[in-house]
């Protein structure tokens, strides 16, 4: 159990200010162990995406967000630091929920971050980098003959893997994935899951997911948020088989029933559960 901690939060609170104040996260302490895949689960609007985005200061680009508390990468604060935000975001990569190709060729999408940071010696060096990261996400064979075509021409599943390659190419320490399979058809989702599976021994991955099944299949650790508060975090096996808190028990049970009910309703649930990008509304009625 003595696992190195790559990333942890310290009393992290996020409030959306605006017409009305919404406390999306209320003082969360959570640890993300190194070279493990941690899944963040919880009902819609519980602050999953908010937590994820505050882990690499993506809230900086919005004006109506207050972040307090701290996030520590390898023991050092990413908020109270001289290190510029772009460098922090290079070390803590982020893949958004919607497959988002940059308006560039397939090649340039992977090379984008590498070129910005100047982390290559020559053109052939860059070519090798691009190839190796495309291989890493199992995309190389599918695109090797059309590297110069616009990335937008790929299927959404391929684009999502391309996004993973783009993020990995700048050699982050941590990779944040926001429901990366929720916009995909089942087969593409499976490919992306396989990719994550193969990456998780090498990278610290934090993944938001709405699917209990996915968490169970992929994750080493599970973090359960409810209404902006941490309910429980544990390794996947203990979390599902021996939940410590009543709320976790009912959430796990509720979802298990829903998920054995039939796959089609589950698909719809997935749609309904995707979070609004900037102002999560507490789900409680």
């Amino acid at each position: 159990m003595s696992q190195q901690i790559a990333l942890r939060t310290d009393d992290l609170a996020v409030t959306y200010t605006g017409n009305r104040n919404v406390e999306a996260l209320k003082g969360v302490d959570v640890e993300f162990p190194e070279n493990r895949l941690t899944a963040i689960i919880g009902p819609s609007g519980c602050g999953k995406s908010t937590l994820l985005k505050s882990l690499n200061r993506l809230h900086d680009i919005q004006s109506n967000v207050d972040v307090s508390g701290d996030v520590l990468l390898e023991g050092r604060s990413i908020y109270d630091t001289d290190e510029p935000a772009p460098e922090i975001r290079r070390r803590i990569g982020y893949v958004p929920q919607t497959p988002t190709p940059l308006p560039l060729s397939i090649y340039e999408n992977v090379a984008y971050g590498v070129k910005i940071h100047g982390d290559y010696e020559s053109k052939s060096d860059l070519d090798d980098l691009v190839e190796s990261y495309l291989r890493k996400v199992n995309l190389w064979e599918e695109v090797r003959d059309r590297l110069e075509t616009p990335a937008a021409e790929l299927s959404t599943g391929q684009i999502q893997r391309l996004c993973l390659a783009r993020s990995l190419a700048v050699e982050p320490d941590v990779l944040l994935c926001d429901e990366v399979t929720s916009a995909l058809d089942p087969i593409s989702a499976e490919r992306v899951e396989e990719t994550l599976e193969s990456l998780k021994t090498e990278y610290t991955i934090v993944m938001v997911t709405h699917s209990m099944d996915q968490a169970r299949r992929l994750a080493d650790e599970v973090v359960f948020l409810y209404l902006g508060e941490l309910v429980e975090s544990n390794d996947t096996r203990s979390f599902f088989e021996n939940p410590q808190r009543e709320r976790t028990r009912s959430f796990v049970r509720g979802h298990t029933i829903a998920e054995t009910d039939g796959d089609e309703t589950n698909e719809n649930d997935a749609e309904a559960e995707s979070e609004p990008a900037d102002e999560p509304v507490p789900a409680e009625r």
Binding site: P86, G93, P96, T98, I116
Partner: peptide, 27 residues
């Protein structure tokens, strides 16, 4: 333009200006 586009570019460590110049203006 979707915010994901900005987040994707910033998420690999680009600055705001780099994001605007190479991604947003093109899109």
């Amino acid at each position: 333009l979707p915010d994901e586009l900005r987040e994707s570019s910033l998420g690999v460590g680009a600055t705001k200006l780099e994001t605007i110049r190479s991604v947003l203006l093109r899109a």
